[in-house]
């Protein structure tokens, strides 16, 4: 991001700076480049069928990355993303299999996920522990607890309500699952909160300069608590979407969700140092990961290469962020 602040303001320069200074333009160009490359090398890539598969594959990471974005914007990091989401699937699945009402079960599971987020938030805001350590601890605790609850193994969850998010609808030849719609709806709601409300403004301010936020009277601790609580709620909804995609509750699932969600956030242009970035970038970031995996699979390339390319993308994204910060 070049900063053009001379004594004489140059309108053209500032327009250019605004376009290229907008955090999500870079990621969008990367997404576009990947799409063009895959479309040129494989005609099947652009088939509507394939595009809706990409979206379906993006849903879970896409939704988890919303919560991760909120946390990272406050200069935190959430390593318990996947574990909390899996907790939701196990609780809902267990309860339904025990004969409880599916709506009640899912609702309770989402509530527990929210509570998990709230407890992470309490430890971070009240005891001022580093988010990295708190969420790493919760990851460890949940991983063990989940295996104990489910006695070690995965189990099938057959319930039409829990699987509803995997149902499809047609939208002009385009097949969408309700899960995809819920994902876009969540992006819309959280985008509004982040960009159009005081709450969102304060999320940025706290991530950017917590001391300033305190001095201007923002209740920093309470605000952080609300961020982790909201993130937990989103992971709970993610659990419902996960059950819609695969009707299976598996304590060992989503082991890569932490890295994948952080990847989506970071290559979407949100800074790991907090206070910069946004949700549009994260959606693009999640799509980049989805498109990359899909395109490489279509090309018949070993899945290991997908992880390798994703890893390179993360490092490049963080390096670019660092460089732009140093310039400032």
């Amino acid at each position: 991001m070049s900063t053009v602040i001379p004594s004489s303001p140059d309108r053209k320069a500032s327009l250019k700076a605004r376009i290229f200074g907008t955090p999500s333009v870079g990621p969008f160009l990367v997404l576009l480049a990947f799409c063009i490359i895959f479309a040129l090398t494989n005609p099947r890539f652009l088939a509507t069928h394939n595009l809706s598969i990409i979206l379906q594959q993006t849903v879970i990471i896409g939704v988890l990355a919303i919560g991760q974005t909120l946390v990272i914007l406050t200069a935190g990091i959430d390593l318990a993303v996947g574990a909390i989401c899996v907790l939701g699937t196990i609780i809902a699945g267990k309860m339904v299999n025990l004969g409880y009402d599916p709506v009640l079960s899912m609702g309770f599971a989402i509530l527990v996920c929210t509570a998990a987020g709230l407890s992470a938030g309490s430890l971070i805001s009240a005891l001022k522990l580093p988010p990295f350590i708190v969420t790493l601890g919760i990851l460890g605790i949940l991983t063990a607890a989940l295996r104990l609850i489910s006695s070690g193994g995965a189990f099938a969850v057959r319930d039409p309500f829990l699987a509803w998010t995997g149902n499809t609808m047609k939208l002009g030849g385009f097949v969408l699952t309700y899960g995809v719609l819920i994902m876009f709806l969540l992006y819309g709601v959280v985008w509004y909160l982040l960009n159009e409300t005081k709450w969102g403004r304060h999320v940025y301010a706290i991530g950017n300069n917590p001391e300033a936020a305190r001095l201007v009277g923002i209740p920093v601790r309470r605000h952080l608590l609300s961020v982790y609580l909201g993130a937990g709620l989103i992971y709970g909804i993610g659990a419902w979407l996960a059950l819609g995609r695969i009707p299976n509750a598996d304590p060992n699932a989503m082991q890569t969700a932490n890295l994948d969600s952080i990847t989506a956030v970071v290559i979407g242009g949100t800074s790991l140092f907090g206070g910069r970035g946004g949700l549009i970038g994260t959606l693009i970031g999640a799509l980049i990961v989805g498109v990359l995996r899909n395109g490489l699979t279509l090309a018949g390339i070993d899945p290991l290469w997908q992880d390798l390319v994703t890893g390179i993308l993360v490092i490049v994204a963080v390096a670019l962020d660092q460089m732009s910060r140093r310039k400032n």
Binding site: R201, Y204, A205, N208, N209, A212, A213, G275
Partner: peptide
């Protein structure tokens, strides 16, 4: 130290918290 959020624009900083 001015108590500002440097990444936010001027108007946002003027009204920060208010």
């Amino acid at each position: 130290d001015l108590a500002m959020a440097p990444a936010l624009d001027i108007a946002s900083n003027l009204f920060l918290g208010r």
